[in-house]
């Protein structure tokens, strides 16, 4: 039963990065079934992530479409979301989509007043890249540019 639910959730796209599903993102933490009720626990990537409400409704709709009408969605903040929960499949999809996937684990503390991380350009695979801004098009991304192919690109930063 829970496996069926997980399979449905594997088709729910992330509203900000539609190439990923909410499962690839690691946003869905738990699926429980109590009597006839489905309880899905989700966790925000960043605490102010504006996509959370939409993710919640998308999950609800996807389950309703398959005939599951009694759905409860819980939001968990602990343990806090980390990019380590993003699936390998998700990372590969990001790369293909043109967003550099998170490299290494946990927050990029090494860049604290030091050299910024050399992220691989998702287009030409060069590591000759420069961080333009730690804060990019969404809270979860930093803005980079490639010094070889000259393309700007988003990097999904570690959290």
């Amino acid at each position: 039963m829970t496996e069926t639910i997980w399979n449905i959730l594997k088709n729910v796209a992330d509203p900000e990065i539609p190439v990923l599903t909410v499962v690839d993102m690691g946003v869905v933490r738990e699926v429980e079934v109590e009597d006839q009720k489905i309880i899905v626990s989700i966790t925000p990537t960043y605490s102010g992530c504006p996509a959370m409400n939409e993710i919640e409704s998308n999950i609800r709709w996807a389950l309703e479409e398959e005939g599951y009408n009694k759905v409860e969605i819980k939001t968990l903040i602990s343990p806090p979301w980390t990019t380590d929960w993003m699936t390998d499949e998700g990372k590969a999809k990001l790369q293909e989509y043109g967003i550099a996937p998170p490299e290494g684990s946990s927050a990029d503390k090494s860049v604290l007043f030091g050299e910024a991380k050399k992220v691989m350009c998702p287009r030409c695979k060069s590591r000759n890249t420069t961080m333009v801004s730690q804060f990019g098009s969404t809270a979860c991304k930093a803005l980079y540019k490639c010094e070889d192919c000259k393309e700007p690109f988003d990097y999904f930063k570690c959290l």
Binding site: Y46, S47, G48, P50, S133, Q134, F135, S137, A139, L143
Partner: peptide, 20 residues
């Protein structure tokens, strides 16, 4: 533009923390 976005991102984080 980049710093406008940076500050808006920080504002959003603050708002998210305020919500919790």
């Amino acid at each position: 533009l980049e710093q406008d976005i940076a500050l808006s991102n920080i504002a959003l984080d603050q708002l998210g923390q305020a919500r919790m």
